[in-house]
Design a protein around this nucleic acid. Structure first.
Lengths: 170, 170
DNA sequence: TTGAATTTTCAAAATTTATTGAAAGATAAA
DNA sequence: TTTATCTTTCAATAAATTTTGAAAATTCAA
């Protein structure tokens, strides 16, 4: 296998993977392409290499920037925008965690908390208690997961996968 | 809000959530319904309550059983099958982690490892090195995440969210 | 055995999600 | 200004995923 071929495969694989992690295929492919590119790429280059439309390329470079997974890069004397991808895999993971938390976890926790506003508290005593306990369990699980996510977002990669790992695995 | 209404909302919310975590809406709804049901439910009851077809109910109860998120329960003297959902949210998380790892992480790691079989090692020396480093970084990140998942799968909930949490957060 | 009850399958239909491409909107050099 | 270059939007279209429902397969009591 040649290097270029391996890179192409990488872009495809990362694209497939992305769909499992809340990132659509094209968005993940563009990100993968930017990760393996030695140079910043323009929208036209991305369109050309991935064989996608201008609209699609634009939407998804934009989304990558929203997520903090890519940056705009202006080249002196060039009118066009170029894009650079986040290549540090630790940072990539942290950005995905942060963004998904904001979009999914936080809203769902608040929805689930609202469900505790039940007014027939006295009837069906035990059934009521069991339901509330389920909601509380979910919330406390989410809270712990959230704290770990917090720690990750703030932590240094080496601390997390060095110190913490040793504590956990020993 | 009445208890029954809150439960209905819970089923809907859990269904929406599921789609973000590799579980389709109906599968997540059935799971939610089984979590809040005081009694095991039959396929007919699930069809009736969620207003879905028999095929859909069958496919998704089956999927839940595959994932370890529900169990079949036979009632004495009844011909029909009944289903019971896993209600312990820690166990639910562990089963989802285990299953997704098996279906996604393991295959992707092996695909990415294969990409290292590049034969033009000497040409473009630096570019080659950078690409290999990216693949190695991803693999070592995945390895750490995997080890944490392992620990979770084997650990006791209280150890994980008690002892470990204290170590991490302090 | 037979046949009624129940479960499973899967092609077709419906729904959801992603993509296209052309037109409108910016931007900046001339 | 004007004009050419580049970016954004979004309705229409395409692709992917989920759901249906009826037929086939299975199970079990009689």
């Amino acid at each position: 296998m040649k290097l270029e071929e391996a890179k192409r495969n990488f872009v495809e694989t990362w694209g497939t993977l992305g769909t499992n992690w809340g990132i659509n295929r094209t968005m993940a492919q563009i990100h993968a392409l930017l990760m393996v590119s030695e140079q910043p790429l323009s929208t036209d280059e991305i369109m050309e290499i991935l064989d996608i439309s201008r609209g699609n390329a634009n939407m998804n470079t934009r989304a990558l920037i929203d997520w903090g997974l890519a940056e705009r890069k202006v080249k002196l004397g060039e009118r066009m925008e170029f894009f650079v991808g986040e290549k540090d895999i630790w940072k990539v993971a942290v950005k995905i965690i942060r963004e998904r938390r904001k979009r999914e976890i936080d809203p769902m926790r608040s929805t689930l908390r609202d469900l505790k506003m039940i007014d027939d508290k006295d009837e069906k005593k035990e059934e009521y208690q069991r339901f509330i306990k389920l909601l509380d369990d979910i919330d406390s699980f989410a809270d712990s997961a959230d704290k770990i996510a917090d720690k990750m977002v703030l932590a240094d990669k080496n601390w997390f996968f060095g110190t913490m790992m040793k504590l956990m695995i020993k």
